[in-house]
Design a binder for these strands. Structure first.
Lengths: 225, 225
DNA sequence: AGCAAGGTTAATTATTTCTTAATCGCTTAT
DNA sequence: ATAAGCGATTAAGAAATAATTAACCTTGCT
């Protein structure tokens, strides 16, 4: 299953939010919205979108400032940024690229144009490392090829299930995965095993990689911290 | 058992009507047909299909006009519309989306392609707000994905019920929810718990996110400010 | 066949969260 | 001023859920 790209749409006009949001979702993107630059930056920090669409003209914190904010926040500094510019805002092109934009699109926006530009941008970034065999988590290196995890330059041997479980949990650090999520992705939808099975694997994993790395949310699920 | 989706198929060629009709029915859809745009619109008003498949080229009223008709009729304006376009009708893509199409499919149509596209469309509509994973309240970010609330860039850990309660209250800031509303939405209609239970949860919530954010309306209910 | 490793289950214990009940305090109507 | 009504608070018990442990299956390998 391929993860769909997350796109954060930041504009102060509801019409545009709705219109573009609808079309982007229809194109298969996971869309989140915000109404000004500050909100946008906050959500971006939290949600880690692959791409942010910023209207230039916005109250409070405008698009260019928002872009600068993003570039100054290490965790999300390399997020793709696309500017939306009103007709005639010529300066925006220059200022936008100065601020670190990856593309800019003139209003009125045609959905299919927007979408193809976005896809092009995403493609450009995602191609080189599509066969991600080595994953870097906070203080691990996860080597899918060798089924090995390295922590503090120490190799940790994991069994298959333990390894897959870790890979899954680290796929989105912080996200809380329900037991169902875990079953569906680590075991497969057709397999039926008891609830305790996950507990036991979680326990073994914790034993090997350190308890503090996996957090329990009672009644909800587990997350990799 | 889930209600099967109603699909209205509009085309002037009997072959296609029969071929697609057969395949759609086999896929479990409830299918009705019409032979031109006018008929299609009439049947749509009457039968309220979930989705309409429109051939672009038709006598009398063509597909694009039919789509516009549908969009102009309030009762069925949000029906999903899929266009069928002959090979080489390139303009149809643009014109179709302008007319408010949700998807378009090129002829010759492969049944399995058509069906998977249709299912994708229907699925998207039936999951209204599942993708809204991050909620912005006045000074919070509520992250459903991580079951975490952030206030002043501080993470606040909430239990399951507390979290659900907060999500519910913030779903409409300012609105006063009665205890019944709250029970129905946070607990579920079948669960029976005492009145004090809500008080206690409200109290805990206030303790964590700040008393000032939840206001009591004696005899009426609570609201998120 | 016998062994080892990984995976699963079941039984027990531990922990957290939810609910209840008892009591207190504030507001309002008589 | 007083009682009635309603919510707040508190602590304790119940229920839900997870952690732990050990035993039990498989499977693959020698």
């Amino acid at each position: 299953m391929e993860e769909m790209a997350r796109i954060l749409l930041v504009d102060d006009e509801d019409d545009i939010l709705e219109f573009l949001g609808y079309n982007l979702r229809k194109a298969g993107f996971d869309v989140q919205t915000a109404r000004n630059g500050r909100e946008g930056h906050q959500v971006a920090c939290q949600w880690k979108p692959h791409l942010v669409i910023l209207d230039i003209m916005m109250p409070e914190v405008d698009g260019i400032e928002a872009c600068q904010l993003i570039r100054l926040t290490p965790e999300i500094a390399d997020t793709l940024v696309v500017f939306l510019t009103a007709r005639g805002e010529d300066y925006s092109q220059i200022a936008g690229f100065d601020a670190g934009a990856d593309d800019y699109i003139k209003k009125p926006v045609k959905p299919n144009v927007l979408i193809s530009r976005i896809k092009a941008l995403l493609r450009r970034v995602s191609t080189p490392e599509s066969s991600q065999e080595i994953i870097q988590a906070r203080d691990f290196i996860i080597d899918k090829e060798r089924y090995v995890v390295i922590k503090d330059s120490q190799q940790i041997a994991l069994s298959k299930k333990e390894f897959e479980l870790l890979v899954f949990l680290t796929s989105r650090p912080g996200k809380v995965f329900s037991r169902d999520d875990i079953f569906a992705n680590v075991w497969g939808s057709d397999v039926v095993v008891g609830d305790r099975t996950i507990d036991v694997h979680i326990r073994k994993l914790r034993e090997k990689i350190g308890v503090e790395n996996i957090k329990t949310y009672k009644g909800i699920g587990y997350s990799y911290v």
